[in-house]
């Protein structure tokens, strides 16, 4: 794992150069997805959330065979369809048209969520509003009184999938920390997150605390720590 991490870091460092003009510091959205994709293992069953997590599929290294699950009832989700292939009856959980790969299967919602809740899916990649030091996740509601609450499958995914990866900007648009001692927004699940891929760093949730295992190019540990609401353990020494 360490080897693949450092290899990925080198690769990202290399690829980060042409993108520097687009963002001041750290990884951009594509690079975050690409970094996460390095940790998707050959042969795994994977569910990708809407947004940046969806991009992970296009960066999984060649030679790894990964089966994508979409909770509305398809295992073996393929790429976006061409104009000719468009079928309103073949969509993903984000209600976007998709394709099915050879070897795909369709099933109803009871079976689809049995795959999730019965611990059959290996990895789920989701976005986050907040993550706590203990791996609590808040990603469905700000708790605002006038908002229309909507949860979808997020609570089922975090409760049932074996490994939960989070891809998120390290701070809010206003620069507030999203990694906190406790989430202030309503929870999606308690103690469910395994690893956080932010634009600045890769952080593992462990029994000892949050362990920073990797930094984005030209980002220092102190820079990350200053933007994190929890004291980080620096595995890079």
């Amino acid at each position: 794992m360490n080897q693949s991490v450092s290899k990925a870091a080198q690769e990202n460092a290399k690829n980060a150069k042409p993108e520097r003009d687009m963002q001041q510091v750290g990884w951009n959205r594509e690079q975050m997805a690409k970094r996460c994709a390095q940790d998707i293992e050959d042969g795994s069953y994977v569910n990708l959330g809407i947004g940046i997590p969806e991009k992970v599929a296009q960066y999984v290294p060649d030679g790894r065979e990964v089966i994508y699950h979409t909770e509305n009832g398809l295992l073996g989700m393929g790429t976006a369809p061409s104009e000719d292939e468009l079928d309103p009856d073949l969509i993903n959980a984000g209600k976007k048209p998709v394709t099915a790969i050879p070897g795909a299967s369709y099933f109803h919602h009871g079976d689809s969520f049995a795959m999730i809740r019965g611990n059959h899916i290996d990895v789920c990649v989701l976005g986050a509003m907040q993550v706590s030091a203990k791996g609590d996740l808040a990603n469905w509601s700000t708790g605002a009184a006038d908002a229309i609450p909507a949860v979808g499958g997020a609570m089922d995914l975090v409760a049932g999938v074996k490994t939960i990866y989070i891809i998120t900007q390290h701070t809010t648009k206003n620069g507030e920390a999203k990694i906190l001692p406790e989430c202030t927004f309503p929870l999606t699940g308690q103690g469910v997150v395994s690893r956080i891929y932010s634009d600045l760093a890769v952080i593992d949730v462990t029994a000892q605390g949050l362990v920073l295992t990797e930094l984005a190019p030209e980002v220092s540990f102190e820079y990350v720590q200053a933007r994190t609401g929890v004291e980080l353990i620096n595995a890079l020494g």
């Binding site: 109803h108 919602h109 009871g110 689809s112 969520f113 979808g152 499958g153 609570m155 049932g160």
Partner: peptide, 8 residues
């Protein structure tokens, strides 16, 4: 409001 899998 019901989580999707709980609804199913």
């Amino acid at each position: 409001l019901v989580p999707q899998g709980t609804l199913a």
